[in-house]
């Protein structure tokens, strides 16, 4: 009897709470969040004529020497399912993947200067990393400059404009937003 009474109270409380917390709370948050219209809808990136070409928060695949390229992604930035490689960094499979990427990058960037930054060789956690390190962006400059007939200085300036700094200088790392950078390149 005692158990039945508790079960019946449990059913009723779950229903009441589902209404309050499952419908009421998200609805109130959704309404209040309209104070931030860009953010609620995914910080969409648009071209000058208003066409949506992505999100400032979600990385994209860019192919071709004339574009700055994003980090490796196990899902090729499809956006349907996020995730990464789950490889141990000391495993043979990870070493092999890094060697392959290194070879491909060296072949595609004959004029690049200096060592290849680690973020260029490793897959991100989400597969949707919107950023590359400033070092990797600069490393790609000779290739993009040659493909677009632009000066390295002009590209460095764009990289500076697309760099998102770590808050307070230490809450994370600086990153260059690749989609924003390429959008600037495209509209130049």
């Amino acid at each position: 009897m005692a158990a039945l009474r508790q079960l019946w109270a449990a059913v009723r409380l779950l229903l009441v709470m589902t209404v309050l917390l499952g419908l009421g709370y998200p609805a109130v948050i959704t309404l209040a969040a309209q104070a931030f219209p860009t953010q609620v809808n995914g910080s969409l990136l648009k071209t000058a004529d208003g066409r949506v070409v992505g999100s400032a928060l979600i990385g994209q695949q860019f192919e071709g020497p004339q574009w700055f390229q994003s980090r490796p992604s196990t899902s090729d930035y499809a956006g349907t399912t996020s995730g990464g490689s789950n490889l141990s960094p000391v495993s043979a499979a990870a070493t092999e993947a890094i060697a392959e990427r290194r070879a491909a990058l060296v072949a595609a960037n004959p004029n690049a200067v200096g060592p290849i930054p680690d973020d260029a060789l490793t897959a991100s956690a989400s597969g949707l990393d919107p950023h590359i390190s400033p070092a990797y962006a600069r490393w790609q400059v000779p290739r993009v400059a040659a493909a677009r007939q632009l000066s390295a200085t002009a590209l460095e300036q764009l990289i500076g404009a697309a760099t998102e700094r770590a808050p307070l200088g230490f809450l994370g790392q600086d990153g260059v937003n690749v989609a924003k950078l390429n959008l600037m390149l495209a509209t130049q």
Binding site: R71, G84, S85, N86, L87, P89, A94, D118, D119, L121, T122, A123, S124, A125, S126, D129, P130, H131, I132, S133, E164, A166, L171, G172, Q173, G175
Partner: peptide, 16 residues
């Protein structure tokens, strides 16, 4: 040691 495998650029090894 700084491996970026499975990490996001905006967080990096320390904040991960």
């Amino acid at each position: 040691v700084g491996s970026m495998e499975g990490k996001e650029q905006r967080f990096g090894p320390i904040w991960s």
